[in-house]
């Protein structure tokens, strides 16, 4: 119950951040996806069920802003949660570097899924991988990783951040 409440609070805080000041740190059209960070850490910490449903709900919250794409972000986050569940078992989850690389791959996958649905042609999607999705995933990694590092150092929230297990 307490953990569920913590997840709800974290989702709420990140949603507020994503809707308010995150657009202001957009750089060259790239914007960090802090919501993916929440899905990622919930998936690592709580497992597949929590990760999938957290991603589904967060995705719906994002999607209602653009109802014609309803389900797109949900699908992307749900698939991310599946990917985290699948891959995280094969790596050392206590290593921040490994977790960081995993997060980058998940972010790239999420961006690519979203980009595939939004692109008008295959060529545009392929170009978008290098122009948008790859740098976007890196930018997200920088912000989520940096925020996690600060939280772990300053507040000692090690069970929430990179040392997710």
């Amino acid at each position: 119950m307490i953990q569920g409440l913590r997840i709800a609070v974290a989702v709420f805080v990140v949603l507020v951040a994503q809707g308010t000041w995150v657009p202001r740190i957009s750089w060259l059209g790239w914007q960090p996806d802090l919501l993916l960070g929440v899905v990622f850490f919930v998936s690592l910490k709580k497992g597949l069920h929590w990760g999938v449903w957290t991603g589904f709900i967060i995705g719906l919250l994002v999607d209602i802003e653009q109802p014609e794409r309803l389900g797109l972000h949900s699908l992307a986050y749900v698939l991310s949660a599946f990917g985290i569940e699948r891959w995280s078992k094969n790596f050392d989850r206590s290593s921040p570097i490994v977790v960081g690389i995993l997060f980058f791959l998940i972010a790239l996958g999420t961006e690519t899924i979203r980009g595939f649905a939004l692109s008008e042609s295959l060529l545009q999607w392929l170009i978008g991988i290098f122009r948008w999705y790859l740098p976007g995933a890196l930018y997200t990694l920088l912000w989520v990783g940096g925020t996690s590092w600060i939280l772990s150092r300053v507040f000692g929230w090690k069970d929430w951040v990179l040392h997710a297990t």
Partner: peptide
């Protein structure tokens, strides 16, 4: 069942 349901609902919503 739960995760797969979430996945199916997402795909269904996208196809509507």
């Amino acid at each position: 069942a739960g995760p797969v349901a979430a996945l199916l609902v997402s795909i269904t919503l996208l196809a509507l």
